[in-house]
Nucleic acid binder design. Structure first.
Lengths: 149, 149
DNA sequence: CCCTTTGGTTGCAATTTGCAACTCTTGGGA
DNA sequence: TCCCAAGAGTTGCAAATTGCAACCAAAGGG
């Protein structure tokens, strides 16, 4: 059933980036999360929006549910099974936003059209930028990874 | 040489999230970027830090370079070939940060130790949160995707 | 009752990964 | 000078993972 795999559970156990990538770092998981945030609820919603193969979709939905990002709810009337993001799943919103904003900046030729993320007033969501505790902008050159015990 | 693939170039041509995932949404690319941001420069730097198979690393370095995220520079003295992030590559910093912060919040049991990201003063980098133009916090429920022409 | 929709399985075939072993090019040392 | 040890890749497979298509079962509707 489960792929199982003989990999050591975590690619790099102490790195939060690696753990997150282990959970959602494949071709489809983040697109499923994106669509869930955009209103997709049913198996066919996801299948049609992403174009993913059905057996893979089955696997990814179960995997995301197993890791606590999605819940499967049997709809009260009917055999439609509905999926919804958990709090942890919804908390991936900043990840989706930064991926989207990077794509908008670097993955389109000038003039190519693409969708944009807007707030309740229809205004474009401003770029997300890491800042220090004192509010100054940060880059990879002005930060470092500290071993935390 | 190149895998080429028969996929239509982009999984979902108008979605910036999908394009970004097409470029870096695999098991290794983002970890390579993470290590580059943390000071990795040479082939073996990346190989040792990630534990990736050498042939895959070769492929990923070339692919990232082909897509403009990395540059390959032949070191002046010596046969070491050095890799460095381009501006586009460095611009993935917010993505790495949000992945890291999600991992810190959701991918560790209480008590498990993990690394943390700190600014120049050694203070932990605050969580990145999407906000509207007027500064109010945003979630997936209070934003929407607009077709942009 | 029959037919359609939804949500999956199953059986392969085609890709992609990963492990090992092998190559090639410097740069030193003895 | 000659030999050896990196560094940076190749190459050859074997093992996993993907994807396509066809098949199946349970509701609902007409």
């Amino acid at each position: 059933m489960d792929a199982g795999g003989q990999r050591p559970a975590w690619t790099d156990p102490s790195c939060p980036v690696a753990r997150t990538v282990d959970l959602v770092g494949d071709r489809w998981s983040l697109l499923i999360v994106r669509d869930a945030m955009d209103g997709a609820r049913s198996f066919t919603d996801f299948q049609q929006r992403t174009g993913i193969a059905r057996n893979i979709l089955t696997d990814r939905l179960r995997r995301l549910a197993a890791h606590g990002l999605l819940t499967q709810v049997d709809a009260p009337s009917g055999r439609r099974r509905l999926y919804a993001l958990t709090e942890a799943g919804k908390d991936l919103f900043p990840v989706i936003v930064t991926l989207r904003q990077w794509g908008e900046r670097h993955a389109f030729e000038a003039g190519e059209t693409h969708s944009v993320l807007v707030d309740g007033d229809g205004a474009r969501v401003p770029d997300l930028l890491p800042v220090a505790a004192n509010g100054s902008p940060l880059t990879s050159d002005t930060t470092s990874v500290r071993r935390h015990t």
